[in-house]
Amino acid sequence: MSKKKKIGLLPFAAGFAAALVFGWNIFPQILYSNKGQPTTFSHTGHLNHTQKDLQDLDCVDCHYYRADGSFAGTPSLESCAECHNEPLTGVPSEQTFVSEYVKKDKQVPWNTYQGQPDNVYFSHIAHDTYECTECHQDMENADSLPPYYENKLTGYSRDIMKMHECERCHARENTSNACYLCHK
């Protein structure tokens, strides 16, 4: 009887361990898929431009506020094509960018790491006093784009800010947390 009991604990431990391994390790791998980005892009390459007249290229040259105060976000194909209408550097990825998108007049389907759901409204200009990196990954010093993980169930990026994070900051800053401030 006592021997039996001893053995009985082992399966329990095994099950316990298996659940832990599954839950913490395997489950996330199943839940998220690394979608990456449609093409490569080097922020450092653009910011530390070798060409003289482009050396003072700044973040806001591509990520700017429109006239109506809305934020342009990822630059459109037209913005990119202003310079890259033809291949300039001989870098292969640039050549594919030009041939695949610029020449075909097809917008690059960038995946947005902070792409919020349709029902979320966010005003960049209202948060203008904060550093970009308080919410976004530091891209200024990134030579390549980080992997983009998509939640297979929800379709959202793994890295988006969750509501409680918004709320926490708003509470800290003594700003309203009214629902309609951020939902549409």
């Binding site: 399966p11 431990a13 095994a14 099950g15 659940a19 832990l20 913490w24 759901p117 169930l153």
Partner: peptide
């Protein structure tokens, strides 16, 4: 016992909670 252990262990992982949450997010999407 294995199943019981698994159930107990699962509680300590995000699996069930995350799924519950994600399923409700899926309903908006």
């Amino acid at each position: 016992m294995f199943l019981a252990g698994g159930a107990a262990g699962s509680v300590l992982t995000p699996t069930a909670w995350k799924l519950t949450d994600d399923i409700s997010i899926w309903t908006q999407n």
